[in-house]
Simulated assay, not measured.
Amino acid sequence: MTDTAAPIQEATLWSDALWTARVIKNEDDDGWAVAMTRQGDPEPALVGPWTMGRDKKNPKPLDAPAFHTLVKTANEVLRRHEQQLHARLNKHVSVGAGSERIRVSLQIVPDEDNPHAMLRAHDESGSELAELRVKPDFRLNAASAEAWIESGFEKPR
């Protein structure tokens, strides 16, 4: 669907320039589900139960308030996934070294061909003290950060 395509507003299919809501048969039971797919994405960002209509057989038709609620929910799901991914790939710890604190961070680069991580140390003013490429499974914690600092920022074993 291109940005110039007209929105679709049918009983079981609604779309705008960014999202498509499609009411589908729930494979797990006799009910219905709704799938929210962002334009260009191969899979739905959100699949959830959908309400039965008055006849208790067919799905309740989509409408503007339901579509807007589904868009908001799907955006929130994507945002949470992005936050979880960021948290999994970026870690940091602050440790005391002498009279000042040093912030040690680990940024994992999930490259398919050459996965690695960058270990960095910054002083309290934000100046970089050291940077080192490490294996992506490097475990950053207070002990490993202190050991790296005490070694003079040598490559951990």
Rank of each mutant, 00 (worst) to 15 (best):
R101A: 09
L140A: 07
A147N: 06
E43R: 15
F153C: 10
V34N: 03
A66T: 07
E124G: 07
L13F: 15
K155C: 03
S151Y: 03
R133T: 11
E10W: 02
M36P: 09
A142K: 07
P136D: 05
V104M: 12
A74F: 04
A64G: 14
V71E: 05
R80W: 07
F153E: 12
P136E: 00
L46F: 03
V134P: 05
E154W: 06
W50F: 10
T73P: 01
L119N: 14
I102L: 07
V23I: 15
I149N: 05
A35L: 00
A147I: 08
A5R: 15
E131W: 03
V71N: 08
E82H: 12
E128Y: 11
V23R: 11
F153R: 06
R103G: 00
V134G: 04
A33P: 00
P110N: 05
L106N: 02
E76D: 07
P7C: 12
G152S: 10
H116G: 00
K56T: 07
A130P: 06
A130H: 09
A64T: 15
I149H: 07
I24P: 00
G40Q: 08
D3S: 07
N75Q: 13
M118W: 14
W32Q: 08
K91Q: 13
L85G: 02
A45I: 13
L85M: 14
D63W: 04
A64H: 15
G53C: 02
W148N: 01
E43W: 06
S151R: 05
K91L: 15
S151K: 02
W19R: 01
D30S: 10
I102R: 05
T4Y: 04
D30P: 02
D55G: 09
I8P: 00
L62C: 06
K72N: 06
R103Q: 00
L129F: 03
V109A: 04
W19K: 04
H122I: 11
L62P: 03
P110K: 01
V134M: 09
A145T: 08
A6E: 11
E10P: 04
F153S: 11
Q9W: 08
L140G: 09
M52N: 10
D113W: 07
G152F: 07
T51D: 09
R54A: 13
A97N: 07
Q9M: 12
K135E: 00
D29F: 05
K25C: 02
R80L: 14
R157M: 12
N75S: 08
N58R: 14
G31S: 13
E100S: 04
K56I: 04
S94Y: 02
I149W: 06
